[in-house]
Design a protein around this nucleic acid. Structure first.
Ligand SMILES: [Mn+2]
Ligand SMILES: [Mn+2]
Ligand SMILES: [Zn+2]
Ligand SMILES: [Zn+2]
Lengths: 157, 157
DNA sequence: GCTATAAATGGAAATGATTTTCATTAACAG
DNA sequence: CTGTTAATGAAAATCATTTCCATTTATAGC
């Protein structure tokens, strides 16, 4: 049921149809959950939220939909090292601004950060350009994660 | 049996004992395989190489040893998205110079690169410093991966 | 070198996230 | 409205990694 607001079809409908995919209730609800997410969700997390409103939708559908979304580039899939993948919308929510991660190796807490140092983005582009040329690689995306000890874990040691 | 060359105990023996770990044949062989590796090895890859010379050593030991090595920071554990972890020595081989990765999202090929743009390292340090201060995070490591289409996969499309 | 003790090990079984299978349902072009 | 085919759910299968536990081994102290 979540149709955004009232202005007709939601933003991703076009892209979905363009790829030959059908619009289903399951997919709408999953996108809706991802849009409203306020943290990095696992497939199971998403399943539980979806299940609360639509108990008929199974976990398999969650996995299948996420795979499509990741392949279409609408969703990012991350590995934070705890054995389950995490998903995050790539566009369309405030969560989806491009950002990097700070991961606590002790408690696995993950901090998003978007406040890049001014030069950071520029250098990133320069680096991508250099690599792209040198290795004849078409770079479409990047993953940058810093590991260490968070605030709280530092105190406990 | 691989004892490096002849100059007494191998470089990592001290660190192992320092952490209260015992030096065992299994651990020696695993480190030896990692030292000689010419690519990113999975636990199973390592097991097969180890098994060729020492059939008595089990896969469980490989996993257990790798976990210790990763925790000690002697080995890096990576996720390249194919469902199995990859391991790479952090010091002691030519493979172990700090480097970043270029990953083909189509064929999963992984290119190591160490030829950082001059500014890259400096900016990385600046960024780490900034994040460290702002989030009160002690940064010990980073992971940088660029995703895209490799040379060969580009041609096929 | 010999011994006692706790760490390390191997193999089998368990785990748990993700994928596959297959019979059924639903989206949507015409 | 209907036929075609994609999408789905439930259950079973996969498969990398972990856990269990009885046995072996490294090594500190004699
Ligand atoms: Mn994030
Ligand atoms: Mn590498
Ligand atoms: Zn922490
Ligand atoms: Zn490729």
């Amino acid at each position: 049921m979540p149709r955004g607001n009232g202005q007709g079809p939601v933003w991703w409908h076009g892209r979905f149809k363009g790829c030959g995919y059908r619009i289903t209730v399951g997919r709408e609800v999953i996108l809706d959950v991802l849009t409203k997410a306020d943290r990095h969700l696992s497939a199971e997390d998403i399943y539980m939220k979806v299940h609360a409103a639509y108990p008929a939708i199974g976990l398999t559908t969650i996995y299948r939909t996420l795979e499509i979304l990741v392949n279409m580039g609408l969703v990012f899939k991350f590995d934070f090292g705890d054995g389950r993948a995490r998903y995050e919308l790539a566009e369309g929510s405030n969560r989806s601004t491009h950002h990097h991660h700070l991961i606590c190796t002790n408690c696995k807490r993950v901090v998003d950060y978007t406040d890049f140092i001014d030069d950071e983005i520029e250098l990133l582009h320069k680096t991508e350009k250099g690599l792209s040329d040198k290795y004849n690689f078409t770079i479409t995306n990047h993953l940058i994660q810093f590991y260490g000890l968070c605030d709280k874990c530092k105190k406990r040691k």
